[in-house]
Amino acid sequence: MEFKELMAARRSVRRFSDRAVPREVVDRILAEALTAPSSRNSRSTRFLVVDRHDLIARMAGMRDYGSAFMEGAPLAVVVLGDTAASDLWRVNAAISATVLQLACVDEGLASCWVHVDGRPRRKDDPEGERAADYLRTFLPVPEGCEPLCAVALGYSDFRPAPLPAADDEARIIRL
Rank of each mutant, 00 (worst) to 15 (best):
M1G: 14
E2A: 08
K4Q: 12
L6T: 07
L6C: 05
M7S: 14
A9C: 05
R10S: 00
R14C: 00
R15I: 02
R15C: 03
D18K: 02
D18C: 00
A20L: 08
A20G: 01
A20T: 08
V21P: 03
E24P: 07
V25I: 14
D27I: 02
R28L: 14
I29L: 08
L34Y: 12
L34A: 15
S38L: 05
S39R: 09
S39F: 12
T45Y: 03
F47A: 10
V50A: 05
V50T: 06
V50S: 03
D51E: 14
R52N: 12
H53Q: 14
H53W: 07
L55Y: 02
L55F: 01
I56Q: 08
A57Q: 10
R58G: 13
M59A: 06
M59Q: 10
G61Q: 14
R63E: 10
S67Y: 15
A68N: 11
A68G: 15
E71D: 11
E71Q: 13
G72S: 05
G72E: 00
A73P: 04
A73K: 02
L75W: 10
A76Q: 06
A76M: 06
V77F: 01
V78T: 07
G81P: 00
D82Q: 01
T83L: 06
T83P: 06
A84G: 12
S86C: 02
S86F: 00
S86A: 06
N92K: 02
N92H: 03
A94C: 13
I95L: 13
V99A: 01
L102M: 14
A103K: 02
A103L: 04
C104R: 01
C104T: 07
E107I: 01
E107P: 03
L109R: 03
A110N: 06
S111D: 08
S111P: 12
C112M: 02
D117H: 12
G118W: 13
G118H: 11
R119C: 14
R121C: 15
R121E: 15
R122A: 13
R122P: 03
R122E: 13
K123C: 03
E127I: 04
G128M: 11
E129P: 06
D133R: 04
L135P: 04
L139D: 05
L139H: 05
P140G: 10
V141M: 06
P142G: 13
P142S: 10
E146Q: 11
P147W: 09
C149K: 02
V151S: 01
A152C: 07
S156E: 00
D157Y: 00
A161Y: 01
A161V: 04
L163A: 15
L163E: 14
A165Q: 08
A165P: 05
D167H: 08
D168W: 13
R171H: 14
I172Y: 12
I172M: 09
I173S: 07
R174M: 11
R174D: 08
L175N: 09
